[in-house]
Simulated assay, not measured.
Amino acid sequence: DYLALRLVDEFDIKFFRLRLQANGNRAQLDLIWTGQAMSTETVMSWEMDSMRFGAESTPLTVRDVVERHGGEMWFERERVRHEAFFRFLLPMASVQEQLEATQILQNDSRPEFYDFDLFQTTDQSSALEDRLLGELSFTVFDTETTGLNPSEGDQIIQIGAARIVNGKLLRQESFEQLVNPGRLIPAATVPIHGITQDMVRGKPPITEVLPAFYTFAQDTVLVAHNAAFDMKFLQLQERHTGLVFNHPVLDTLLLSAVVHPNQESHRLEAIAERFNITVLGRHTALGDAIVTAEVWLRLLPLLQAMGITTLRQAREAAQKTYYARLKY
């Protein structure tokens, strides 16, 4: 799409053909047009420029996308036919990869969750409201749970978190802890998070883990993906632990919708793919926390380019999106 748009805008190309055929163990995809050809220098600059689609932009380049898919790309001319084309050589999916893709689709992200007020004003959030986002410290966290219903008895079985300071992800400063939920882990959820009953046997209960996590997150802004889900689990432990997580909260799901309002999906996997982030350890608490941290670091400059530079502005923008996405 991006290459075709540039050809239309800069060379007034009116018509394209796509040609797809096998080339050994790869697929050969050509984007073909008739008319003016371009210089090698122009092709190289198009490959390396950050892509734009109307008012939307992405830090990804054409080369980033091709390399992400393990492919190659080049430009050729067919002088006899007065045609030119971009050729992509892409690896074909093996039978095993197709099976794995099916399994991933079955283990989809959590449904969007709204049973928590992300925008409550507290003394801590008020004190930070007018600070620049780039000056703040963030604790990016995720939980794995026995199920999707915190108000109906589901419990946390793992917490993972990473810290961002001065716009940098401090991988050496992380928090990861399995939690004994005091109840059986449903067998149907084990393939998703990979945590079995044996793994949590003998681990500390949430009443011991949350104070440690509270200390880790002290004086920071909490960041999570689909944050209302994780925050609801923390809120329901207030009576047992005496700890109130009154930190300001930012939700990368909502902020992704602020930055890219026309994108259909704001699942963590979809955003990571848009930003060319390698997803490792999906559906482990620390793995998801690190992916979310990488997403937040890429959202930050895009928000700033929109004039959203303070915590207050980010929360207000997220709140508008939040109410726009509410489902009753």
Results as ranks from 00 to 15, higher is better:
4 A>P: 10
13 I>L: 08
17 R>A: 13
18 L>Y: 10
20 L>I: 15
22 A>S: 13
27 A>N: 08
29 L>C: 08
40 T>A: 12
43 V>F: 15
43 V>E: 05
44 M>I: 10
44 M>F: 11
50 S>M: 12
51 M>S: 12
53 F>W: 15
53 F>A: 13
58 T>D: 13
59 P>D: 14
61 T>I: 11
69 H>P: 04
73 M>V: 15
75 F>S: 01
89 L>N: 09
94 S>Y: 13
105 L>C: 10
115 D>R: 09
117 D>R: 09
122 T>H: 03
123 D>I: 11
123 D>M: 06
138 F>H: 01
138 F>V: 00
141 F>D: 00
151 S>M: 00
152 E>G: 01
167 G>L: 03
179 V>H: 06
180 N>W: 05
193 H>T: 13
200 V>R: 01
200 V>W: 05
202 G>I: 14
210 L>M: 08
211 P>A: 02
212 A>Q: 11
219 D>V: 06
226 N>G: 03
238 E>T: 15
240 H>A: 13
241 T>C: 08
243 L>W: 08
245 F>P: 06
245 F>I: 05
249 V>N: 00
257 A>S: 12
259 V>H: 07
264 E>W: 05
267 R>H: 14
277 I>L: 03
279 V>F: 11
281 G>Y: 05
284 T>H: 09
285 A>M: 01
288 D>A: 07
295 V>M: 02
305 A>C: 04
305 A>Q: 13
307 G>D: 03
308 I>G: 00
309 T>R: 14
311 L>R: 03
312 R>P: 03
